[in-house]
Simulated scan of single mutants.
Amino acid sequence: MARLEQLTTPVDAVLSRMRALDAALPERDGVAVFNRVYLAVTDEVGRRLSAGEFTDARAATTLDVRFAERYLAAVDAADADRRPPACWRPLFQLRRHPGVRPLQFALAGINAHIGHDLALAVVDTCRTLGCRPTELEDEFDRVGDLLVSLEERIREDLMPGPDLLQIADPLTHLLGSWSLERAREATWAAARALYALRHCSDVAEDFTERLDAAVGFAGRMLLTPLRD
């Protein structure tokens, strides 16, 4: 606890938590695979914040932290034997399945976090800062651009080599059906819809549950075991 009190920004706090998870989880664990990817993203966001690359550093920091908190809450729920959101359940349920490849784990985590958590994090940030989603669009786009560039690197790092392409053809087909760019566009639309529904709690809750379930279904498909 003393170490957390010495941290200078909320981004440092979430980075510390992710590094602790990285040290504690087995390397092949599906959550560990996603955590390493997300740690790299958050590290890069922190670096760019320090370099002054975000127009509104306060908004970017708040969005980044609210975003990370939803992933960490899902980890806490699973660790406490509580049900995480539906979007995260496939990853936690299949995290040790020998037939699921590391790239599938990484992209299933990205799917859950972008497809569901990011939309809610935008609304959380609007509530925290007293702003509208349109005022966060620049920060949203910058984080999205970073994720797209990292997704390309993830695919290169975790995709089987040329000698395995024939064996991995089902993997190529499966992962080719999912696009981070499309997920990002859908998330921005969902965030704006949720913000518009903020005074209609019943409708907003129903919308959120359906979004959660739909993203969870996509995650289940991404984690289709390709061998026993």
Rank of each mutant, 00 (worst) to 15 (best):
A80W: 04
A80R: 12
A80F: 03
D81Q: 09
R82Q: 15
R83E: 08
R83K: 05
P85Y: 01
P85N: 01
C87N: 01
C87T: 03
C87E: 02
W88T: 03
R89A: 13
R89F: 08
R89V: 15
P90C: 07
L91S: 03
F92T: 11
L94D: 06
L94P: 00
L94G: 05
L94E: 05
R95V: 08
H97F: 10
P102W: 06
L103G: 10
L103T: 12
Q104M: 14
Q104G: 14
A106E: 13
L107S: 04
L107R: 11
A108W: 01
A108G: 14
N111W: 04
A112P: 05
H113N: 07
I114L: 15
I114A: 15
H116N: 14
H116G: 03
D117F: 15
D117G: 13
L118Q: 12
L118T: 08
L120N: 02
L120F: 01
L120P: 00
A121S: 14
A121V: 08
V123W: 08
T125E: 07
T125I: 07
C126F: 11
C126G: 11
T128V: 14
L129D: 15
R132D: 13
P133A: 01
T134L: 10
T134R: 12
T134Q: 12
E135C: 01
E135L: 10
L136I: 08
E137R: 15
D138V: 12
F140W: 11
F140G: 04
D141F: 11
R142G: 05
V143C: 00
G144R: 02
D145N: 15
D145P: 04
L146H: 11
L146Y: 12
S149M: 06
L150K: 08
R153E: 11
I154H: 02
I154T: 14
R155I: 11
D157M: 05
L158P: 04
P160R: 03
G161S: 01
G161N: 00
P162R: 00
D163T: 07
L164E: 09
L165H: 15
L165P: 07
Q166C: 13
H173L: 12
H173F: 12
L174G: 04
L175Y: 06
G176P: 07
G176S: 05
G176I: 03
W178K: 02
W178P: 00
W178N: 02
S179K: 03
S179P: 01
L180H: 06
L180M: 11
R182A: 12
R182V: 09
R184C: 01
E185L: 11
A186I: 01
T187E: 05
A190R: 03
A190K: 01
A190D: 15
R192H: 13
R192W: 08
A193E: 15
L194S: 09
Y195H: 13
A196P: 07
L197K: 02
C200N: 13
C200K: 06
S201M: 05
S201Q: 12
S201N: 06
D202S: 13
E205D: 15
E205I: 09
E205A: 15
F207I: 08
T208N: 07
T208W: 09
T208F: 09
